[in-house]
């Protein structure tokens, strides 16, 4: 719930945290967020562990999918929820502990000031993130792919940390329920001619986040999912 004693931008910013079986990390992630950001919603995507209870206990609002529908579907649910509840800015933030709440203010500033519609976090600008070599190669391939398919010139296509204005979220319509949503968001930024900027953010790779992250085979699944989503749109 927005706290009126906080500065207006913080109170009207909804942090959307999609989570599927993230009981191990979610509590710490939400507590770190709630230290500075009053309004956090966990989209529990049909978890079979205590994700929802832990999110609520840590001070987040919780919206629960009854069955698992994928991260893209969870984000779209968070967007819809935020629009319904009057959010002026929305931030997407991963639940596995790889993002830092310290990056949020810098990420949100260009959106709050109205300079851009979307601020995309990038681990390849300024900040040194300890990125595994194979992951780095996959991400660089995705950058080339995105440049070809959407025309966006960005350095990090699959970073879950993004800030969006309300107007931008109103235009987004994510149909890719699973992992292809990251490419879909970029496609829609390009097709709606949204103003965007990349902001350097730090990504922390833990054993947990590596285990939950995508491997090479997943990258091909994402590619197929993305192509099918484009064909059947």
């Amino acid at each position: 719930m927005p706290d009126s004693s906080m500065p207006a931008a913080r109170a009207s910013t909804l942090i959307v945290v999609p989570a599927y079986n993230e009981a191990a990390t979610l509590g710490d992630v939400i507590r770190a967020l709630r230290a500075d950001w009053p309004w956090v919603v966990v989209i529990d995507d049909g978890s079979t562990d205590r994700t929802a209870a832990i999110g609520e206990a840590a001070g987040a609002e919780v919206v629960s999918h009854t069955v698992n529908r994928g991260q893209g579907a969870a984000l779209q649910t968070g967007f819809r929820y935020g629009l319904d509840r009057g959010a002026r800015q929305l931030v997407t933030f991963d639940a596995d502990g790889q993002h830092s709440s310290a990056d949020l203010e810098r990420l949100l500033e260009p959106v709050v000031s109205g300079r851009v519609d979307v601020a995309l976090g990038s681990r390849f600008l300024e900040v040194k993130s300890d990125i595994p070599v194979l992951r780095k190669m996959l991400l660089k391939s995705a950058v080339v792919f995105t440049r070809v398919t959407s025309g966006l010139r960005i350095t990090d296509t699959h970073n879950g940390l993004r800030a969006l204005s309300r107007a931008a979220v109103e235009q987004l319509d994510l149909r890719a329920d699973r992992m292809a949503h990251a490419s879909e968001i970029l496609d829609q930024i390009a097709s709606h001619r949204m103003r965007y900027i990349e902001v350097p953010v730090h990504v922390r790779y833990t054993r947990h986040s590596r285990a939950k992250g995508q491997n090479t085979l997943d990258a091909f699944r994402v590619l197929i999912d993305y192509l099918l989503a484009r064909v059947f749109r």
Binding site: S64, H65, T66, R69, A73, T77
Partner: peptide
């Protein structure tokens, strides 16, 4: 997905 989303938001 649409049904699950609607239900989740209504319940919240």
């Amino acid at each position: 997905t649409a049904v699950v989303r609607r239900l989740a938001i209504v319940e919240a």
